[in-house]
């Protein structure tokens, strides 16, 4: 089976967010980069499916040249091949992103294309659905369990309060996954070594006109007032009890 998984390079923000002076971007000078946990799980799911079914897995990212780092990381975990749709680093809206992904993979024969449920930075909740629609494939979103029943049939499950919703689907298909579907592995030393020799195809996609145009970013108002320190160590316990009573939870 041929599986594709799509990932997006994003800054790992840590505890404080700083914006650039023009308010257009996060100031990433002191930040590391990563992908969304949903996408880490999508990568893991792709590797497991290929381990169980045979075939091969490909990882794709649209982003700046540096996104090769995130592709390499996925290759180190066990994905066979990478595709980098290289951009100049600016924002691509979800429609433009989906269009570029579709034109890069149209001529390939994937059975399953995996996405994260939403990207960590933009959170548009739509690139996967747009790709599915353009390919004319069925799509299930928010998936937290995926069982392959045969080469053509799968069962996807979504977690909702009180239980699981079941969605049967026929391949080829698009599935967008949520963290929790599996526990992603770490790359092994050997994986890191072999990843260096794996192929990354580099393409320069054409950017179609955006329908959702970012004008700028801003920080939301900080909701909380002054913190009340209740003390140190076990000596704070009487004050904690008093605070719990005051809040009416005790």
């Amino acid at each position: 089976m041929q599986v594709l998984v799509c990932i997006k390079r994003v800054p790992d923000t840590g505890a404080r967010l700083e914006l650039t002076a023009d308010g257009q971007e996060l100031d990433t000078r002191n930040l590391e980069f990563t992908v969304s946990p949903h996408e880490e799980c999508a990568v893991e799911e792709a590797i497991r499916l290929v381990e169980a079914q045979g075939g091969s897995a490909t990882v794709l990212s649209l982003g700046p040249e540096a996104a090769g780092e995130q592709i390499r990381e996925a290759l180190a975990k066990g994905i066979e091949r990478g595709i980098l749709l290289e951009t100049d680093g600016g924002e691509w809206d979800p429609a433009a992103t989906a269009t570029a992904i579709v034109s890069a993979i149209e001529d390939e024969a994937f059975d399953l294309v995996l996405f994260g449920n939403e990207s960590a930075d933009a959170g548009n909740y739509q690139v996967g659905v747009r790709v599915a629609q353009a390919l004319g494939w069925p799509c299930v979103t928010s998936v937290k369990q995926l069982e392959l029943e045969s080469a053509e049939r799968a069962l996807a499950k979504r977690e909702v309060p009180g239980g699981w919703e079941l969605y049967p689907l026929t391949l080829p298909a698009v599935v967008t996954v949520k963290e929790g579907i599996n526990s992603p592995r770490h790359p092994s030393l050997r994986g890191i070594m072999t990843a260096k020799k794996k192929e990354i195809v580099r393409l320069k996609p054409e950017k179609s006109a955006a329908q959702l145009v970012k004008l700028g970013l801003k920080k939301p108002p900080e909701g909380r007032g002054q913190i009340q320190m209740l003390g140190e160590g076990t000596a704070a316990v009487p004050q904690i009890v008093a605070a719990l009573k005051e809040l009416g939870v005790l």
Binding site: T13, A122, G123, V213, L217, K219, P220
Partner: peptide, 10 residues
């Protein structure tokens, strides 16, 4: 954006 830690004007 960012799960609610930033706002975007679009």
């Amino acid at each position: 954006r960012w799960g609610g830690s930033l706002l975007e004007e679009a």
